[in-house]
Design a protein around this nucleic acid. Structure first.
Lengths: 114, 114
DNA sequence: AAACATAGTATTAAAAAAGATACTAATGGG
DNA sequence: CCCATTAGTATCTTTTTTAATACTATGTTT
């Protein structure tokens, strides 16, 4: 993570960036943001190409940042549910802004190629 | 770059993400967004820890995406100026949203630790 | 008793990103 | 002729991310 004491503003962008960088994080967030809580294997099925390891790592990281909660139900076989937090929902506007910019950029680059 | 045909919305977020991920891209953008055009060495001085190689690579990538222009003045020693494009300026609102979320997140995590 | 299901962990390997260091071209100045 | 200046390249190494594969625990079902 980039730290730049001379430039605290920049630093904040990087803080925000760190919530969503990681090969599978945007898609994990997407599934949890507009949906029910999901079990580990449900996420795995929704994101077929992710490995269990990557899924675990990304989920734990998001949990650490209070973006989602991990709830273990004491059953066998295990049941673990991942649920977006209230706080995690505050990512929504940022993601929407990015999504819009991205959509526009796709158009922009198409035009440029002509 | 993540491609996910079943989920075009996600894809757009990743498109936007790709404009600003890269260890030094946010700070390069920051310097060019609210300032004069800058020469290669001026940027290098503003970002002392970056290597020439990384600076070149990031600048070329941003140029490819039409975020900035590279102008070579036929002089010796060479003078090359990097300038944000009109289009590049459209990143501003997105970056601002991120910066605000980041600032808030720093506070949020502080509170959580207490 | 063996197989199954879920939610992982452990280990090793490959790929991608970043860093270190040395080198280049062209011209002006001493 | 030699040095300085600017904006890079070229190579090679290190670090960081991601992938592949095999393994585990524990009750339930057959």
């Amino acid at each position: 993570m980039l730290k730049d004491k001379k430039n605290p503003q920049q630093c904040q962008i990087v803080v925000a960036l760190n919530m969503i960088v990681g090969k599978w994080k945007p898609i994990i967030l997407d599934h949890l943001l507009h949906g029910e809580p999901l079990r580990f294997n449900e996420l795995k099925k929704l994101i077929p190409d992710i490995t269990q390891r990557m899924l675990t790592m990304h989920l734990r990281e998001l949990e650490e940042h209070d973006i989602l909660t991990r709830t273990v139900y004491p059953q066998v076989p295990p049941k673990v549910e991942y649920r977006i937090t209230e706080y995690g929902m505050t990512l929504q506007p940022m993601l929407k802004t990015m999504q819009q910019w991205g959509a526009n950029h796709i158009e922009h680059m198409k035009e440029k190629d002509n």
